[in-house]
Amino acid sequence: MILFTGVNKKYADGTVALRNINLKIEKGEFVFLIGASGCGKSSLIKLLIKEEDATSGLVRVNGYDLSGMSAKAVPFFRRSLGIVFQDFRLLNNKTVFENIAFALRVTGASPKTIRRHVPMAMAMVGLTKKADAYPGQLSGGEQQRVAIARAIANNPVLLIADEPTGNLDPDNSWEIMRLLQEINSIGTTVLVATHERAIVNAMSQRVIAISDGRIIRDERKGIYEDEGRNS
């Protein structure tokens, strides 16, 4: 599903964000990616979704070899993923329904498919009643649930979330994490970058800890322990 082999990432300005990353995530897993701010979590995710290219090493995701991938193939690879960001990234001039439908529309889905899949995704995140609301009329937690609905609308095999609760209060954060777990329970692989210590500890899932661009810990049923620096 996800395979990193000897991956390094150095940005154009010389910043080294990832050092010799070796990582394997199997289909159906739920994985937390933790670490202090600036340790390289987002960089790892950017390599995963081919927003950035690895400086060296191999990245394989969903059967695609990202290093040798042509620009033309990238959109089709991305359709096998769902991506959720801290800042929701919804279209403010489109309703909840239209935002979710948009993910299907760009893939050339038929109106029939859209009419079937969008309500399913809205039901999954519990927002059926908000179909006609605009993002500006929703709370942060609700907006993030719309973003998750959009991410899962075309049944991706892998859901990636980069600090999905970063802008939310604790109650909403719990709700979002539970939702991600529920999505995982029906077979979708889920990777979540976060520094929600309490939630990570309570959920008892696989934890990959990064510090200064290196994987320093990878544990099944792991916890968020202090790496000896501020997080």
């Binding site: 033309k72 959109p75 919804l90 893939t107």
Partner: peptide
């Protein structure tokens, strides 16, 4: 540009 960024993430072709 924001919309374009979102479109790229959800797999829109160029």
């Amino acid at each position: 540009r924001k919309e374009i960024g979102i479109m790229k993430h959800i797999g829109a072709t160029d």
